[in-house]
Structures are given as C-alpha cells and as structure tokens.
Design a protein around this nucleic acid. Structure first.
Lengths: 264, 264
DNA sequence: CGGCTTCCGTTTACGAGGTAAACGGGCGGG
DNA sequence: CCCGCCCGTTTACCTCGTAAACGGAAGCCG
C-alpha cells in the first residue's frame, strides 16, 4: 500500500484550502437565532456531506439546526425544493472560486479548463451531493447538468461565440462538454463513495461470499490492481484536453462538427 | 417545426421491435400463481418504466403483482436489494440483444460500437431506470457504471487485450468508455424525462414566473431553438467515433496513453 | 402604556412507506 | 390421517413528509 498517493490532485479538497466551505452564512454561535433559506441550504449541504444523502430527513436537518422540522417549512416549501436548493447552492460555489471566471480573459481554452476544474473541485468537495446534481431534472430541457445555472450556460455560450465559434458549434460544444463533465465526475465520485464504503464497512457479519466467484473472470482478477488504480486526475486532464482539441478543430474548420454523416 | 424527426434513431424503442421487453419470466396468465425473484424484478422494471421510479413502493409493486407487499420479502430481502436487482435485470438485457456480442468477431471497434449501442438501447428503453444504473454504488470500486456486470468488464478487457491493447491501455479504455457512455446516456435520458414532464405537466396552477427573467440571458434566448434541438443520436455517434479514434491511436502507438506526465 | 397584528418556531396529527413478527391455510410425505 | 413446511396475509411499529392549529415575542399604533 505504498502507491504514490494521488492526493497531489489539484482539485481534491485536501489539496487546497480544505474548504468544502459551502457558504459564510452567519457564523453559528454568533447571530445563531435567525433561520433563513440560505442558512438552511448551507446546513443541508453540510449535513449531506457529512452524513450522506440518505440520512437527510427534515427532522434530522431541523435537529442539526437546533429546531423542529416544521420550522424549516417556513423557508422551504418542500423537501423536493430543498434538494433543488442544495444543488443550486453547491453549483453556486463556482462564483466564489477565484480560479474560475465568468468571462474568458485568456482565451476559450483557458476558460473551459478553469471551469472544468472548478466543477471538478465542487464534485470532489461534495461527493454525496453530486449525484443529485447529476440526476435532478433541470429547469429546462436544454439546461444540462452539471452546469445547471442559466448564468453559466450564458457565460459558456458567449465565451465560445466571442472566440469565433459558430452558434451551432458553441451549442454542440456545450453538449459535449456537459456530457464529458457529467460522466467523468459522476464516475469519479461514485467510485470514491464505494471506496469509502468498502473501507469503513468491514462489519463483523460475514457477507456470504465476499468475492463472488471471481474465478470466472480471470482477466479482471489479473488486472485488479490496474483497475483499482485511481488515476482520475490524469484521466480527467487527458479527456478534457482531447475535448478541447476536438473543439479547436471545429473552430478552425469553422463548421458544425460532422454534420450529414448519417447515411440515409 | 418540421425538423426531421429524430425517431429514425436506430436505438430508440419505437425504431426497433418496440420491445422494452424486460425478460420472458413465465408468461403472465399461464402459471400466474408462482411468485419468484425473477418475476418480481421483471415486474419492478415494468412498473418503473410505466409509473416512474418515484412511484415504486413495496405495497404498490405488490398490488401490481396481485399480492400483499410483505409477500415480496420472501424473495427480496429489502427494497434496496430490489433496486439493485432492477439495475442488474436491466443491464442483463444486453445478453438478449442479438446485435451485441460477448466476443468480438469483427474487431474491437465493431465490438465497442455494438456494445455502446446496446447500452444506449437499454437506456432509451428504460429511461426511468437509467439514473439508478448510473448512481447505485457498484459492487467493487473498479466496476464502473453503466457496465456493472463483471461478465461485461471481463469481456471488454479481453476483447481489447486480444486486439493488441496493452493491459494499461485496455483498462484506460474501459474507463474512458464507461465515462463516455454514462455521461452521454444519463444526459440523454434526463433530458427526455424533462421533456416528458414539461409536456404533460401544464397544470392549471400558474407557477409564479414560468420563464425566470430570461432577459438576462440573451444568448440563451437567441439560441434556444438550437439548444432545444435533440441531436442525441448524432452526438452519440460522433463522440463514440471520436473515442474509438483516440483508442486507435493508443493502440497503434502501443503505449499507455499519457503516462509519466505526473512529475515525480 | 395597552392592545393588535405579524412573524416564527412548536405541537399535534395524519397518511404513507419499509419492514419485523406472528398467523394460517394448503399440500406433500409419513 | 396428521404433521410440518411453504408461502402469502395480517397486524403492528417506527420513520417520513407535511397540513393545521397553536402560542409567544416583537413591533406598531393609538
């Protein structure tokens, strides 16, 4: 177990300020009394981060805030809406990220790089929240997770169009980019989740057969150490760069990527 | 609004046998009485497909099978386990897909193409189930959704290695492929879900402001029709081909893609 | 200063969901 | 014929989300 720790990852919470900071939200203990939507959402994020999404109930969240469950309903119309708010809260951390800019100052590649890493940082800081980001139905069909805020969609499109992308190419890029981020990050956090579960779940109860007849899958067995290697950061970087290269080509050729290649 | 209907999509349920077939499972009506795990899981998939994941409760599923909720517990230890079973059931449809082969007969590209389309078909046939496929914690950290079955992981790795990929490259390809499938398909089904919700949810209740001050997002407004265009099939194809090209390069160069770019 | 409104957290209550436990009827083997 | 097992049912308990009524504190107006 002396693999080089992959915690040199620039997007991992430990690798940075150790934030997972959520939001200022009136320091607990000072003006403690006032309940409000922001404080509730912040507490919910915190709660999910520490106890897991499954543990979040209105009563428990209330207790966490020193209040009865029903008090929350004064500020949050329903649990569903609260979850939407959680997603929004977490995504809004992008605004507070000094490395991510709403406007591209150093070209669109720099912009997309920073944005992608910003989202990845959020995903890694809130792995329990990210599945929510990924699966909650967005407000409009064309708002695609994980960039669920109109402001970022607008920013994204403007950045690319101003850099010379055609409208079609910009929209197409938006889709490819979303899908890349979503797939990669969802996989990364779910893998992390499993790893965590696997490590603190070695319960005394013997689970029938732990290793299902792995004998049938010799290649999997042989490659297990490779498969278990966590190279998420490098993979992310590589896939991202590849995507950017693709977009570069689209931009240079000044056309919608690969239209009319369906053979009908 | 006379865009060419994208229902020429070869993976959409309507475009094929209209299956969404689940599993044979002892023809309903003949030996009707016998409850068993397979029948329950099949019914659960069917139920989720038609009523949505949120509507699935043990009592309702029981009713759907003409039985009390508690009867299910004779065959299924818990609701959680039932959901795992649902995921497995749905992914197992790959075995019944005549266009997908466990062994590559016509090269690895053909293999990956068929597999990808097979998974896409499943996602489109069971859009309400797919988020489960995407987010349920896999059995082992290195089993990555949406290919959650060891058999397919084994098959995938063997296919690539037999085609000349190094072990590292095969594993790396497995990851890139998983992430691509997951991101693209999750986005595609969630978008479909939203579209469906948007179309049969025009409730009489006026929702405060339907269109949030869209005026602040002029580009989004201007590109709305482009953004709303559903070109999932073409995008899928393009991204898949791009991925295959990338892999091809890796294969030709006979090396792990981009190793040693961490500077230790 | 007294009373009234408004705000906001609490109490109470209900229906629904997951599931443990006890129950009971039918059926196959002695 | 009886016994025990298989399997669906009944009952019951606890947790949830949330509606509705409640009650006190804080501010406003006279």
């Amino acid at each position: 177990m002396d693999e080089p720790r992959e915690d040199a990852d620039p997007d991992s919470p430990e690798g940075r300020g150790g934030a997972a900071a959520v939001i200022p939200a009136a320091g607990r203990g000072s003006g403690r009394a006032g309940l409000d939507r922001r404080r509730i959402l912040g507490a919910a994020v915190e709660f999910i981060d520490s106890q897991g999404l499954g543990a979040l109930t209105m009563r428990r969240l209330g207790a966490h805030l020193g209040v009865e469950a029903m008090a929350l309903y004064r500020y949050v119309p329903s649990r569903e809406n609260l979850l939407d708010g959680v997603v929004e809260t977490v995504i809004d951390e992008l605004y507070g990220d000094p490395d991510v800019h709403l406007e591209p100052g150093h070209g669109w590649q720099d912009y997309l790089q920073r944005l992608a890493h910003g989202v990845r940082r959020i995903a890694l800081a809130h792995p329990e929240v990210f599945p929510l980001v990924a699966t909650r139905p967005p407000a409009a069909p064309w708002v695609r997770p994980p960039l669920r805020s109109l402001r970022w969609v607008e920013s994204f499109l403007v950045a690319l169009i101003d850099s010379g992308f055609s409208q079609e190419a910009a929209v197409s890029a938006y889709r490819a980019y979303s899908s890349f981020l979503l797939g990669h990050l969802l996989l990364e956090v779910s893998q992390k989740g499993v790893a965590v579960n696997a490590e603190d779940k070695p319960e005394g109860v013997p689970e029938a057969q732990e290793a299902t007849d792995l004998s049938q899958y010799p290649t999997v067995v042989r490659l297990e150490s490779l498969l278990s290697l966590d190279e998420s950061a490098a993979e992310f970087e590589e896939a991202l760069e590849n995507l950017l290269e693709r977009l570069e080509i689209v931009l240079r050729e000044g056309r919608t990527p690969r239209r009319g290649d369906s053979r009908d």
